[in-house]
Design a protein around this nucleic acid. Structure first.
Length: 427
RNA sequence: GUGCCUGUAGCUCAACGGCAGAGCGCCUCACUGUGGAUGAGGAGGUUGAGGGUUCGAAACCGUCCAGGCACCCCA
């Protein structure tokens, strides 16, 4: 066993059980996205590194991208995020697309990080964006989609919360505290780290930055001010819209939400476990310059991304993962001996023609083994054809779940099975 | 990239520096045409790798590899 070549660090093998979960997640995401009228799209997994130079976080590109040189000497990155690709796709056909665009995607991404809880190097991400719209109500739509997803998977408002803030509001608040615009980036970073530092360290960090005692006091006050949003017309409209669509329970204002990505210009939000478990489940916001940054005309948008790893942790924690069947076969046709092998193959083909997902045992081993296989593999019905049956022109249909079996003609058996299977599917 | 913890049978885990074990799973048989249950038997290990200390190492020491957790950053 030692000789098995190891998988790449931070990647996951999707065995059928895992793949079933991933597919279920994909189906749910599709349902929620389409329910809101969003179209599916996909971008290349590989992009030129320079695409990310424009606006992604410095660290995201320089430290965390998987980069290699292709045969032509270009630096290629395995995409660490989708938004720049989206911006490029929009810019390329900017004049012919119908706005506002409502697009969603679900695919793989790579970041070169140390794997840990809720984080791997290869992960899947749901990206959903509304582009060519600039109103608070547009931002509200994306937030309500996130809420709709939580509702769809059975996560309640007392389990997860979508924390919302607005960078323009924060800029105005910083100005009110007479913090110089040049310090904006640093102060945003400071706010972002509030939870991760001890109060003393945080204060020292702020002081080093050049903030006065009064400014620090004002900042601390602001961060605990649950009413600060009322000073922003944008946010007032946003919350009103959220209330109207009935997802207010999931949403909460938090002046501490800044988001790391530099391209957000207005509304920013992230979803978290109410009990504070792990990192953000999803994150997003409003952006104004993304399309222009890749060479297009200015176009605003709002979107968010949700990784499959963290949401999986939360879904498991709150037992929201459904029971998923990984066995597509409904019927197993057994084979009695070498001589009847072809007959069994033919019978299986007949059953498939009638629409039954059918496996035929292709090796004439003991019947006991074949039944055990069906049982363990989760195939409910077994069709037995041996010399006795052939002589009588019949087959034996065994229902492993009901523990009963009957002798039927081939025609009857096919009809019997399609009836049983239809009933099973209806349940 | 930094720090802490962990690597023993397919899986979950025991074993004071002194013979490497259990439960589950797997295989065989009881039952050569009937799954789960029961009983009996069996296979399965270079103790992550390669060094060092020691009369003796799964255990102690340092190196590498892998995994987990936290930091950084972020989905």
């Amino acid at each position: 066993m030692k000789k098995v070549v190891q998988a790449i660090k931070g990647t996951r093998d999707f065995y059928p059980e895992e793949m079933a979960v991933r597919s279920w997640l994909y189906r749910t995401i599709r349902r929620v996205s389409e329910l809101h009228g969003y179209q599916e799209y996909e971008a290349p997994i590989l992009e030129k590194l320079e695409l990310y130079a424009a606006k992604s976080g410095e660290e995201l590109v320089k430290e965390q991208a998987f980069v290699f040189e292709d045969r032509g000497g270009d630096l290629i990155a395995l995409r660490p995020e989708l938004t720049p690709s989206l911006a490029r796709m929009v810019a390329q056909r900017q004049k012919e697309l119908t706005y506002p665009l409502r697009w969603w995607s679900f695919g793989p991404f790579w970041r070169y990080e140390r794997p840990q809880k809720g984080r791997t190097r290869e992960f899947f991400q749901w990206n959903i964006d509304l582009i060519g719209a600039d109103s608070p109500e547009s931002d509200a739509e994306l937030i309500s989609i996130a809420a709709a997803f939580f509702k769809a998977v059975g996560l309640d408002p007392d389990q997860v919360v979508i924390l919302v803030n607005n960078r323009r509001l924060m800029e105005a608040e910083l100005a009110r505290l007479q913090i110089k615009p040049e310090l904006k980036g640093d102060v945003f970073r400071l706010i972002d780290r509030r939870d991760k530092m001890t109060p003393d360290n945080w204060t020292a960090y702020a002081r080093d930055m050049g903030l006065s005692e009064a400014q620090m006091e004002g900042l601390t006050l602001l961060l605990s001010d649950e009413e600060a949003w009322k000073r922003s017309e944008e946010m007032t409209r946003l919350f009103t819209a959220l209330e109207q669509v009935g997802v207010k329970d999931y949403v909460q204002f938090d002046a501490g939400i800044i988001r790391g990505l530099e391209y957000y210009t207005g509304t920013v939000f992230e979803a978290r476990d109410r009990q504070g478990e792990g990192r953000a489940i999803l994150g997003g916001g409003h952006y104004d310059n993304l399309v222009a940054d890749v060479g297009g005309d200015p176009l605003s948008g709002v979107g968010f991304a949700m990784g499959d790893v963290m949401i999986r942790v939360i879904l498991e924690k709150y037992q929201c993962l459904p029971e998923l069947n990984t066995q597509p076969a409904q019927v197993l046709v057994t084979v009695f001996d070498e001589d009847s092998l072809l007959d069994s193959l033919r019978l299986a083909a007949e059953l498939r023609a009638r629409g039954a997902n059918t496996i035929v045992f292709t090796e004439p081993v003991r019947l006991q083994k074949q039944l055990k296989f069906a049982d363990k593999a989760g195939v409910r019905f077994v069709v037995i054809v041996g010399p006795d049956e052939r002589q009588a022109g019949q087959v034996t249909v065994k229902d492993l779940a009901a523990r009963e079996q009957t002798s039927l003609s081939r025609e009857q058996a096919a009809a019997f099975l399609s009836q049983k299977l239809a009933k099973a599917e209806a349940v």
